[in-house]
């Protein structure tokens, strides 16, 4: 199955917004061009027949080891907050978020 992937500039803008990446007006054409090239490579990969191959979530031939439910961490708030830009009453402060 071959799907020709291409991407429009407005899609790049939407993805950039979702990823919180700022791309300036003069850069956007170049970014679109480069991502289009990557997608062409994906097109090439898509051409491989994978009908009988099971989807792979991870390249390692191993499964997840599980941890026993035990508390192993102690309170290190002071150390962590020493490097935070702004804290108050034990909270990290960030620019106002409006829902």
């Amino acid at each position: 199955m071959v799907v020709n992937m291409s991407i429009e500039q407005d899609e790049i803008e939407k993805i950039a917004e979702l990823a919180r990446i700022h791309i300036s007006g003069e850069q956007i054409g170049q970014v679109t061009q480069r991502i289009t090239e990557i997608l062409q490579m994906v097109d090439q990969l898509q051409a491989v027949d994978t009908r009988d191959i099971e989807p792979m979530a991870n390249p390692l031939d191993a499964t997840q080891r599980l941890r026993t439910d035990e508390v192993t961490e102690s309170d290190r708030r002071e150390a962590f907050q020493a490097i935070a830009p702004a804290v108050e009453d034990g909270l990290y402060l960030v620019p106002k978020v409006i829902d």
Binding site: L91, L93, V94, P95
Partner: peptide, 8 residues
């Protein structure tokens, strides 16, 4: 928080 948001 004086116009800021606190995170716990």
């Amino acid at each position: 928080f004086h116009g800021q948001t606190g995170i716990d």
